[in-house]
């Protein structure tokens, strides 16, 4: 008998809880209905990305010593470097990064001894064809390349190549 009594009380308790919790839940959503949305409309408002964003690479061929460390450290072998000549006569003929493979791990930038390769805050990396994923840094200004691939996105703020960081973090860490 007491079982049935407790079941009866439990029934009403549950009903009460259901009514109260449902009403409170409605309150939460109602509050949000009249508050401002947190999202932005993407093509109109571009997201702010912070300094040091691991986006699309920037490469300064003048300072490159063609040491191939970036090529070696890349976990996916997406960097392709071709060098002609020997010793002081060496000349860079090809520097490509295949963004179809790139992990954006920053290892190549960290390993670069002259900091001639770094990652920029450029995040819009979409393209239409798989072959467009490969950017030839030796050929032309990569910024222009991207503009060519993405004529519709011209309003994207063109970011001037930033000054490279003074040194790769791994070396900086030596001085505590």
């Amino acid at each position: 008998m007491s079982n049935q009594v407790s079941a009866f009380i439990g029934y009403w308790k549950t009903a009460w809880r259901a009514v109260v919790s449902s009403t409170l839940g409605l309150g939460v959503t109602l509050k949000h209905l009249f508050s401002r949305p947190v999202t932005v409309e993407y093509p109109k408002a571009l997201p702010e990305v912070p300094e040091g964003w691991r986006g699309w690479h920037a490469y300064e061929s003048d300072r490159c010593t063609m040491c191939r460390l970036c090529e070696q450290v890349c976990p996916v072998q997406c960097i392709r470097l071709e060098v002609e000549g020997k010793g002081r006569e060496r000349k860079l003929v090809r520097y490509e990064i295949n963004y179809g493979l790139c992990l954006f791990c920053n290892l190549c930038a960290e390993v670069c001894p002259t900091a001639c390769l770094w990652m920029t805050a450029d995040w819009d990396l979409a393209c239409y064809r798989r072959t467009d994923c490969t950017i030839r840094f030796h050929e032309t200004d990569p910024n222009e390349q991207r503009q060519r691939l993405w004529p519709g996105m011209k309003e994207l703020p063109a970011r001037a190549p930033k000054k490279p960081r003074e040194a790769a973090p791994a070396e900086k860490a030596q001085t505590p």
């Binding site: 990305v49 912070p50 040091g52 964003w53 691991r54 791990c105 920053n106 990652m119």
Partner: peptide
Amino acid sequence: FDQLCGARLTYH
């Protein structure tokens, strides 16, 4: 994480 390491999902 963007500020901390420059990536949003695969932080490394």
